Computed example of a mutant assay.
Amino acid sequence: MTGLPPDRLEWARPGDRTADYCLWDYPPLGPTAGRLRQATLLWQSLAAAGAGPRLHALCDALRAGLGPGQTVWGAKRSGGVTTWEFYFYDYGRLDRSVSVGRVLALLAPFAASPLADPARRPYFMFSLDLDDALAEGRRPLDRINLYIGHPGSSVSSGLSYAYTQEGLAFDNLYAFFDARREMEQVRAKLACSAHLDLPGPSLDALLWPELSRCGVVVVANKRACDGLYFSRITVDQLILFFERLGYPEAVTGFVRDNRRRLDHLLFDVGLDYAMADGRLVVTKSAYYGLL
């Protein structure tokens, strides 16, 4: 049924957290008995990509140290290769309990880091890239992405910075929109892009009608591309996303075969895009869930 070891098939339990990739909670769409957790899709992505046991153990250590439902994972696909980014939230700002220092300590048995804890910076979340090389100690954890609030606008937004030994470098601006009430603002934001030629392609090439019926749309302005995210989509929309972008059958087929076991959940997906030789090209895509 799955291609996963039995211990990696995670069955939902009463009281499980259901939240989107911003760790904003939502009620499950239906009964949870006999259903799967989103963490199962993480294990499936690791298995499909041939990830080693140390990376599995690293994920287990994060959940053991922070608790279930406290970490967001993202499986990113670019050029046929899957990588993973993990996201850590604490909206307490300086009163946070989920800090860079705490996560670095949890990861220390797997990978050393030369980075100091930026404890006095008012970040509300941070993320880092995890892979076999890091889990096996073949590369240091030398970059963390810090996310800072961006008040002063009617649009909810945030800024991300790359934090390395050289300091902070600005990376991305994220703008959040209510998909039901603010689609015209989304279209205006997409059209005002440094990475699209004018006259630009039809925005429907980006704003897929099948996915636009979601909860929240996020537009990101990045250095080498722009990004578009659809938050709180259904499992059927997730399958469509996989199929349209040509995900491996090991991933798409797993979700398709287990659709009924996942239909109590909402999902989040994203894609990066830019112009290449006069065409709109998706350079990377991703899907997200709770660990």
Rank of each mutant, 00 (worst) to 15 (best):
R102E: 07
R259A: 10
T234H: 12
L141R: 13
Q165R: 12
L58H: 08
D117M: 02
P109N: 01
L240F: 11
G15L: 09
L238E: 04
A188M: 05
A48H: 05
G34F: 04
E10Q: 12
G167A: 07
L23D: 00
D257V: 02
A39Q: 03
A274I: 03
W11H: 12
V72S: 05
Y91S: 11
A19H: 03
Y123C: 14
A108Q: 09
V103R: 13
G149I: 02
A51H: 04
A169L: 08
L168V: 01
A205S: 14
Y123N: 15
F110R: 09
Y147E: 09
F88P: 12
R232A: 11
L4I: 05
V103D: 03
T71V: 15
R260V: 02
A57H: 14
R93E: 03
S99R: 11
T18L: 14
Y174W: 10
A286V: 06
S160G: 07
K76N: 10
R54I: 00
Y247L: 07
A19T: 03
L106E: 01
G246V: 00
D178F: 07
D171N: 06
S193M: 10
W84G: 02
R77D: 10
L36Y: 03
R180Q: 13
L58N: 03
Y147N: 10
A12D: 01
L206M: 00
L104K: 14
G215F: 03
S99K: 14
V155W: 09
V103G: 04
P248F: 04
L58T: 03
V281Y: 06
S285T: 13
V155Q: 01
S212D: 00
D272A: 09
V255W: 05
D263Q: 08
A48W: 00
T2G: 12
D132Y: 04
C192D: 15
S285E: 08
F124K: 13
L41F: 01
A111I: 01
E182I: 02
A188K: 15
D90Q: 15
L266I: 06
T83N: 15
R232D: 13
A179V: 14
L104W: 04
S285W: 10
P199V: 08
T252E: 13
A179S: 09
P140C: 04
Y273M: 08
K284S: 14
Y147W: 05
